[in-house]
Amino acid sequence: MHRSTAMSFKTRRAFLAAAVAIIALAGGAMKASAEDVVIGLIPKFTSDPYFVAADKGAQEAAKELGYTVEFNGPVDANVATQSDIIDKFVRRRVTAIAVSANDPTALAPALKRARDAGIKTLTWDADVTPDARSVFLNQATFEGMGRTFVDMMVRSAGTSEGDFLIVTAVLTSPNQNRWIEELKKYAAERYPKMNFPAILPGDEDLEKSKNVTLNYLQANPETKGVIAVTGIATPGVIEAVKQLDMVDKVAVTGLGVPSLIRTYLKDGSLKEAALWSPIDIGYGAIYLAKAEIDGTLDPKSGSVDAGRLGKLKFISDDTVLLGDPFIFTKDNVDQFDF
């Protein structure tokens, strides 16, 4: 029985090898045209309006350039799955891989394997260790975000004195922690009477963000405002403030995805929130990949061409900046459809 299985496997394999060889030959004849450029775009996780919007931008760029962009990632921010997907893109021999990393070091081995196979690697939204990628597309500088959060808060609360709560994603989110660090630094210089007695994690969950805010504000009703430094937390925080009837006493601001905060901007429970365009970051990532593929990426020139976004600036040897964070208000929020 064992032998017969082995035999059939062998014959099948021979047959398959022949079939595959033919397909491969046929495919090989058309190499090196733009249609053959396949870019693997890997988000932190797929099912999130933010990353879906990034995919939208990437597809737009792909259409302009005649590329194919394949969007695939884990469902639950799992690094092992991201690493597996990179490996599969390597086996597919895609032209470039652009990834938003769930972990700065865990993806390095896989990205290095990709590099060894001659595939261009770059990062967007969240970086990996520099030796595993050529360039990082940064959405906003940490200083810029920190400043924006504090300024928005002072404008919304009408005061810079008192206690302010910060609601974050998880206590260890690298981006959020850098923002909080910069925000506190900036506040200490400009508004010394602004205190941040607590940083609570909402675990990227709307209900959890609401509940932690609710519980905190009940115990600390003298709080002047809440800064939500992750997009998912902002609506949750506002819901908590509304449920407590504290809209006039506690100001809310923070990171805001327009589609999630539109209603709150309109009813006045939120005055301002900031974000960069996720569509643009996906769009920009593909143009960065193009420069990398064409060999035109040159930090010394100080900028890189990015289609309708114009020229994007290098802020270091291997980091390109998308632009300044955009502030949404009730007057401009309707212009955005993500």
Binding site: D76, A77, V79, A80, S83, D103, T105, A106, P109
Partner: peptide, 16 residues
């Protein structure tokens, strides 16, 4: 093996 393969150790390993 997992820790060596991913070259990092974190609490959300092996979800599901």
């Amino acid at each position: 093996i997992y820790t060596s393969r991913i070259a990092s150790a974190r609490g959300n390993a092996g979800l599901g």
